[in-house]
Design a protein around this nucleic acid. Sequence first.
DNA 1: AAATATTTTTAGTCTTGTCTAAAAAATTAT
DNA 2: ATAATTTTTTAGACAAGACTAAAAATATTT
Lengths: 217, 217
Amino acid sequence: MFTLSEENYLKAIFHLEMMSGTGISTNAIASKLETKASSVTDMVKKLAEKQVLVYKKYQGVSLTKSGKTTAARIVRKHRLWEVFLVEKLNFSWDEVHDVAEQLEHIKSPKLTRELDAFLGFPKTDPHGDPIPDHEGRFDSVEKRLLSSLKENEVGVCVGVDDSSSNFLQYLDKNGISLGEKIEVLSIESFDGSLSIKVAGKVLSISSKIATNIYIQS
Amino acid sequence: MFTLSEENYLKAIFHLEMMSGTGISTNAIASKLETKASSVTDMVKKLAEKQVLVYKKYQGVSLTKSGKTTAARIVRKHRLWEVFLVEKLNFSWDEVHDVAEQLEHIKSPKLTRELDAFLGFPKTDPHGDPIPDHEGRFDSVEKRLLSSLKENEVGVCVGVDDSSSNFLQYLDKNGISLGEKIEVLSIESFDGSLSIKVAGKVLSISSKIATNIYIQS
DNA sequence: AAATATTTTTAGTCTTGTCTAAAAAATTAT
DNA sequence: ATAATTTTTTAGACAAGACTAAAAATATTT
Ligand SMILES: [Mn+2]
Ligand SMILES: [Mn+2]
Ligand SMILES: [Mn+2]
Ligand SMILES: [Mn+2]
């Protein structure tokens, strides 16, 4: 069994390994969890003793098989609860993250199993992220950044990279949501900003925005 | 804002005041929380500083208005989640308590509000206990112990005093559930055991069982 | 009204998870 | 290859929440 703090470390390392492969640095973990490197060193020693990760001084850490499964199950719960909040309790996609951060630590295998069934075994959460199964497996949707499209190409929005309330509200305001068709009308070579057509309306978005939207084409 | 531990103390004191009035002793709190009296003394000092209870050395503690509301809101969440688990996720009434003990600490006013609405604003939980409103108010159902009935009297089961898995499973096994009519056929004067008729069947229950079942007549 | 028993508080210790400051190792620049 | 910089670890401290053992206050007997 893991403490709340241990679970948060495992999840952070899991996400970091997802992005940048194995051998996650103390500093990377510290900045993701908004804590200090020295605290991370202490904690990874403890987690190494519990066999959920391998730690070699000055070399960073890597999750073991068991560590990956444990972390994926927390992510599974996080995303199932996000679906619940949006589908059943009228939350919008920018309101769910903080509550899910709490709910993901509830310990009850039956609860997770039944919640999954109650929601109809969803495959993705409200931000387009895949929901791992009980064993921690999930199929990664093939997707590209909107910024990788060329002029006159089209795609369907299937996810976001940044799930902050700020960014999601910006998307809402501009009619961009999951499943929406996006057409790139033109690209400004000077600053990489795009003119796009979405939901019948033309709008201009910065390159920063375009690198936080995933599309399928 | 209160820590998990502080919330558990507040809830315990709230329940103790419910039963035995004001001025709750250190020992009573300790035994309810399965901790030591010395730990309780430390904690009530802290809670007194936070103005949620009044503490006078050697005199026990009493919740303030604000303490009562805070505690009632935790109880509100506990019971709403119990309803959710039974009504929506196929839990039985003997499986919900431990999970609700975790869920009651989730902090999100919107979540509580929406959950309440999603469940259709239930007035009681799966054990017949009333669900406080946001302000901490709730109407106490008038009810008596089954053991207070005389021979040939009847009542309807409206609650249980003990919500342990053990006891609830015993009730299930014998067809006793909320809303069920119970008729007292005879009372054995030697040990106070009762012969009752419930769901068409006659069965004999000990006096201890009878003092843990609430009925309305 | 003492004496005894019980309850409650205090004093001191421990664990978990965090922090700052300093030391050590690894990396990058000259 | 040395020096400077950055990253990581160690050492020591702290707060929260718990515990044990001992002291103090209260309650109960005789
Ligand atoms: Mn999230
Ligand atoms: Mn999400
Ligand atoms: Mn309960
Ligand atoms: Mn209940």
